[in-house]
Write a protein that binds this DNA or RNA. Structure first.
Lengths: 345, 345
DNA sequence: GCGCCTTGTGTGACCGGTCACATTCATGCG
DNA sequence: CGCATGAATGTGACCGGTCACACAAGGCGC
C-alpha cells in the first residue's frame, strides 16, 4: 500500500523491478503471465507491485504494443433512446473486456465535418463502432479509412451481405413488417408511415418492411411522411396526417415520433384507437406509460451494442470468432394505441 | 496526399523530417508553432507533412508530454435524458477544444465496483468528470484519488462551497422551489413529492427546495415518495398517491417519473389537472407532447455539461480561468398538467 | 576583431512499456 | 563427459513523440 500520501509520479515497471531486485523485463513477464518465471520470483514481484501500488500505464502499453484496448463510438446523438441504449450496451461489453470506450458526436452530416470526426476517432487508436442509422452515421461509416477496424450498427441490409462483413443490425425490416401486418390485420385499409430521417430513402429497412407488408396485403401505398427524430417532428407529421380523414392507421419510425403523432391526433380531436391507430418502434421506456399506451415493436438495442462490441473485439484480437451477424428478434408489443378501424367506413 | 493505397504504418515525425531534409526536432517545432523556425524551412516541413499525410500520434504525445487531452465521464446511466444531455454537452465542448471523451458507466453503486470504475477512468489518463446525482456517482466522486483532476456535476450544494471547488451544478434547488411555489400559488393545500433516488436524503437539493417552499407557505410537509429514475417508478409511486383523496398536487423529480404518475392517475380515474396537478422536472423533449402536456422546470443540461468541461479544461491547462460556478437559471414552463385544485374542497 | 546575445537547427535522453535477442545455469541424452 | 536443450533472467533497441541542452551562424556593441 502506498502510505506516503504525496502525489508523486506513479510507480513504473522499473520501480517495481528495483524494489523486487529483478530486471524490468521480469516484471513485464509477471504482469503478462509469462510461464517461465520462477514462482518465488513471481511472488516477490507481485509483492513489490502491491506495495508500490503499481498499475500498468495504458498509454505506454498502447504506444509500445500497438494494441490500445479502446473503442470509439461515433454517433449522431447521445440523447435518443435507441442510440443511448446501443452506447450503453457497447460500454457494458467493453467494460467486461476491459476496453476503454470513447465517444464522438457527429453534429453535422456535412462531409467535411464527418470526415474530421472520423479522423479524430482514428487518432484515438483502437477500433471504431459507427452507429449508422442516419445520414451522418452512414457517411461516417463510408469515410473510415481502409485498414482501421470498424463495425457499423446499421439498418437491416437490403440483401444478405457477404459473410464477415463488419456490420450488426437488429431486424428492423422484420419489425416494421410485423407492426404493419398487425395494423392491417385489425382491418385497416392501409397504414401510413412517419419516417425517421434515414428512412425516406427507398432502400431504408424500416420503410421496406412496411412497404412489403402493404404489398402482400394488396393495400394502397401512401407516401411516407418525413419526420425528424424527436416528438416535435412527429407532431408536425401527425398534424398533416390527422387532417386527412382517410387515415386510420399510422406507423412511426420510433416511439418519440409516435408520441408527437398521438399529441397531434389529440389536438385535432381524433381519438386513439377509436378513430386512428398508432404504432411506434423501439419500445422505449415511456411507451408503456403513455395514454393511450403505445403499441410498438421492441428492439434489443443494448444487446445490439453488445454484439457490435463483440464483433469488433473479435476483429481486434484473433480470439473466439463471434457469430457472423448477431440478430436480435424484434417483438411486437400490442398495447392500447392500436385497434380496429371505426366501423362506419 | 497519400496516393499509394497500401495500408502501411502511418508517417511519423521522423519520416517527415527525412522527407523535408531537416531533423525531427524541427518538425516538432513546426507542429507546435514554435517561433524560431525559418519560414522557408517551415514551408518545406509543412509540404512534407501534407504529402505524407502525417498526423501527430495522440498516444505518443500523451506518453511523452504527460498531457493527454482526454476526459473520461463517469455516469450511472447513459439513457436518461438528463444524463445523456450532460454527456452531449461535455462532448460538444470537448470536441471544440479537441479533447477526446471517454465514458464509464457505474453499473453498481457498490463501493468496490465504483472504485474499480474510478481506477479504470484514472488509467485512461486526462481529467475526470463525474455525474453525481445518484448514490453511485456521489460515491465515485468521493473515491477519486487526490491529485487527479476532476469536476463533479452535482446537485445544488447545501451551503455555498469554497471558491474554486471543482463542481458544477444547475440550480435544481431553486427549480424545485419554483415549481412548488407555482403549485401552491394555484391554491393547492400542499404538494407531494416523488423523488429521484438520491433525493431522499435530507440534504438533497431538489427535496430541500420543495421543502422550503412548503415551509414558507405554511403548508404541511408530506413524506417524499421514493421513485426510481424511470416511468415505472413514477407509476408505482403515482398509484400510491392516487389512492389518497387528499392529494391534489404532485411534484416529480424528473419528467419520466411524472409520466408514470400521469399514467397512474389516469388508471385510477383522477383527471389531470381537474383533480390533481402534476409537475415534472427537466423539461425533457417529450414533456411538451404528453397529454396533458407537462408543467415542468427546464434545466440546461447541455450547458451544464459544457460548463463542466470548461472548468476541467481550466484545471488541466492553466488557460483562461473559468467562471467559478457556472449556474444556469432554471425556467418554469407551465403547461396543461397544472391547474387550480377542485373547487369542492 | 573579439565577445555576446539571438536565431535557427541538431543531438541525446526520456516517457513506460514491449519485443527480439543474449546470457546463464541446470538438466537430459548419446 | 561433452554438448544440445530449455528454463529463467537480463540487455539493448524501439514505439513516436517531447524536453533540455549543445552548437553554428549572423548581428551588434565596443
Amino acid at each position: 500500500m502506498n502510505v506516503t500520501g504525496h502525489t508523486r509520479r506513479p510507480a513504473s515497471i522499473r520501480d517495481v523491478a528495483t524494489a523486487a531486485g529483478v530486471s524490468y523485463q521480469t516484471v513485464s513477464r509477471v504482469i503478462n503471465g509469462h510461464p517461465s518465471v520462477r514462482p518465488s520470483t513471481r511472488e516477490r514481484v507481485l509483492a513489490a507491485i502491491d506495495e508500490l501500488g503499481f498499475r500498468r500505464n495504458a498509454t505506454a502499453l498502447a504506444l509500445a504494443s500497438g494494441r490500445s484496448r479502446a473503442v470509439t463510438v461515433l454517433t449522431a446523438n447521445t440523447t435518443h433512446y435507441g442510440y443511448a441504449s446501443i452506447l450503453q450496451g457497447i460500454e457494458e461489453a467493453a467494460r467486461a473486456a476491459s476496453y476503454a470506450v470513447g465517444i464522438g458526436v457527429l453534429e453535422s452530416a456535412e462531409d467535411a465535418a464527418v470526415a474530421a470526426e472520423v479522423q479524430r476517432a482514428a487518432d484515438a487508436g483502437g477500433g471504431l463502432i459507427v452507429i449508422a442509422y442516419d445520414p451522418a452515421g452512414v457517411r461516417a461509416l463510408g469515410a473510415v479509412p481502409a485498414g482501421l477496424p470498424v463495425v457499423g450498427v446499421v439498418e437491416t441490409p437490403a440483401s444478405p451481405p457477404a459473410g464477415g462483413s463488419p456490420w450488426v443490425w437488429a431486424d428492423d425490416r422484420e419489425a416494421a413488417y410485423q407492426a404493419t401486418r398487425h395494423l392491417l390485420a385489425l382491418g385497416h385499409e392501409t397504414v401510413h408511415y412517419v419516417a425517421i430521417p434515414s428512412s425516406t430513402r427507398r432502400t431504408s429497412a424500416r420503410t421496406s418492411g412496411w412497404r412489403q407488408a402493404l404489398k402482400e396485403a394488396g393495400a394502397p401505398e401512401p407516401r411516407p411522411v418525413q419526420g425528424s427524430w424527436g416528438p416535435a417532428g412527429g407532431h408536425a407529421a401527425g398534424l398533416k396526417l390527422a387532417r386527412d380523414p382517410s387515415v386510420s392507421a399510422i406507423l412511426c419510425g420510433n416511439d418519440d415520433l409516435a408520441l408527437g403523432v398521438l399529441r397531434a391526433l389529440h389536438e385535432v380531436g381524433r381519438p386513439v384507437p377509436g378513430e386512428v391507430s398508432v404504432a411506434g418502434f423501439d419500445d422505449a421506456p415511456h411507451a408503456a406509460f403513455l395514454t393511450p399506451s403505445l403499441t410498438t415493436v421492441r428492439l434489443d438495442f443494448t444487446g445490439l451494442g453488445r454484439a457490435a462490441f463483440g464483433l469488433l473485439h473479435g476483429v481486434l484480437e484473433e480470439s473466439a470468432p463471434v457469430a457472423p451477424h448477431p440478430v436480435s428478434v424484434p417483438e411486437l408489443v400490442v398495447r392500447e394505441s392500436s385497434g380496429p378501424p371505426p366501423a362506419d367506413r
